[in-house]
Design a binder for these strands. Structure first.
Lengths: 284, 284
DNA sequence: CCTCCTCGTTCCGCCAAGAGGAACATCTGT
DNA sequence: ACAGATGTTCCTCTTGGCGGAACGAGGAGG
């Protein structure tokens, strides 16, 4: 696997243990965590002790297991509050909602997944509300596929080599079909999904791009399938794409001009463009 | 300092770096972080590399510094969602708000501070809204003092030996005066504050207790000073204390009896009571 | 435009922090 | 009461990673 240079394996172990709580159950025991990460129980136990001491995890005496602690909550709300992507996107989400009357969302890419950063819920009585902050897979739903489509080949390969479990009955789990879809999404500049992640729902997503035109997140509009018909999905695409483009430009510091997306390339007199550093995300 | 047994210093370093972002500025450079934690730049850099690889922190190319990443946001919303303390307290907060028409809050204690887990805002037009998730000092405000008053002597000493900067003009920064207040709070079972943390505001807080009657958090009612006069503060105290007691009991799994608070002591046939483990919080 | 200062990043050899296996203590379900 | 599993602790050996210093890239100021 492409090891990030310079890191220490012990730090990564700590991060991995923390991230175990992002997806898994509320509380996790030492043995289970050790099994899941391929570490010894002693190691996991020591790390959990340290994290408990800092309040990042808490020990649940009843179940004799560990769960996230209050410091993690603090960290997270700070991260959410500080997010450039969220702050920049929010007015555009409001605009989208006002124009389309459906729920508009921003998502961020995280290693091995994605999550909703925020939403502006629709104006209808029956509306759609997503779960902000939960880590979701990349292969299901318009947002996930959209982010994946605008990722590096390495990331795509990695994501498609995973389990690819079906979230709903409509989830595409065949790698070849997914690759074909990703190619089309990349060509179109947007993605659509009908009930792939949430049954009875549909959504349209367009990527927010960072350096090297790799997605750092996505903007989407979603709602119940009975309102988001195929025709309506096609109708909202331009608005979603436009919003995502505006967010992309604003994130990059460009003063949101009406002009076309600039092609990837060196942007000044420097011989090396600043975007071939190494695929790290910069602003989120 | 009272070192938590069993932990590894490298894990604690990772946690410390993460927590640096809880209070400090949005982005922090390697040099500054290293200075602040007393570590070498190389160590900080390596850890940040690892955390970046896992999405917990993100590199900001513009400022050449690091900030929290999307995975941290995911972690935090999960922690908030899973919080027993928050879930258990919420209905009582609604009840408090309905009865008193002022904003009701729950807070959790984190090592070296506290944070609001949630709030139910008041019914008036001019109301008070606290910042959920931000880490706040223990020496300022009713909630902070209340949590501190019901902490172990070690924790109190540690908290009072810090800087004790004045958050507002009314913040008490004299350790001796604070100790006297803490003693009174412990005797009364509740704390009050007028503009100590937020100018123009007042609040009343009562502790939510865990094992060994050490506070894991607090319930509070807060509002603008012009409505929360001294008389009204005195009037709401019983409601706040009652709510906190109910939350304490519910958290401990006891089926919320109307009975008196049970005194600290061994609770079964075991020779050693389970509460002298070592002051770890259990449920948050 | 050049210089200096500072910051982030990288390199390398020495060494103590921590990995790991196994024993111990506890609790649960049958 | 027993058996299995889980969290916790112990102890020794070794390898991961600490730290000081060198490097390269910016940015501020002259």
């Amino acid at each position: 696997m492409p090891e990030a240079t310079g890191g220490t394996s012990s730090s990564e172990r700590v991060a991995d243990i923390l991230l175990l709580f992002s997806d898994g159950p509320r509380t996790i025991g030492v043995t289970r965590a050790a099994r899941e990460l391929g570490l010894s129980k002693a190691v996991v136990h020591r790390i959990l002790q340290s994290l408990t001491g800092r309040g990042l995890v808490a020990y649940d005496a009843a179940s004799r297991e560990y769960g996230l602690g209050p410091a993690a909550a603090s960290l997270g709300s700070r991260a959410l509050r500080d997010s450039d992507l969220r702050a920049v996107a929010l007015p555009h989400l409001v605009d989208l909602r006002d124009r389309l009357h459906e729920t508009a969302t921003v998502s961020a890419k995280v290693p091995g997944g994605r999550l909703f950063l925020d939403q502006v819920v629709g104006a209808h009585e029956i509306t759609m509300s997503v779960e902000v902050g939960r880590r979701l897979p990349l292969h299901a739903g318009a947002v996930g596929k959209c982010i994946l489509a605008f990722s590096t080949p390495d990331e795509i390969d990695l994501a498609l080599s995973r389990d690819l479990r079906a979230v709903t009955q409509a989830t595409v789990v065949d790698p070849d079909r997914l690759r074909a879809e990703l190619a089309r999404i990349r060509a179109d500049g947007h993605a659509a999904s009908v009930g792939e992640r949430e049954a009875g729902a549909a959504s349209v997503a367009a990527p927010v791009l960072g350096r090297a035109d790799v997605a750092v997140g996505a903007v989407s509009v979603c709602g119940p399938r009975f309102r988001l018909t195929d025709e309506r999905i096609a109708a909202v695409v331009p608005d979603v794409v436009a919003a995502a483009t505006l967010v992309t430009d604003a994130l990059a510091g460009r003063a949101t001009p009406g002009g076309p997306r600039r092609p990837a390339g060196p942007d000044s007199a420097t011989g090396r463009s600043p975007l071939d550093r190494d695929g790290q995300s910069l602003t989120f």
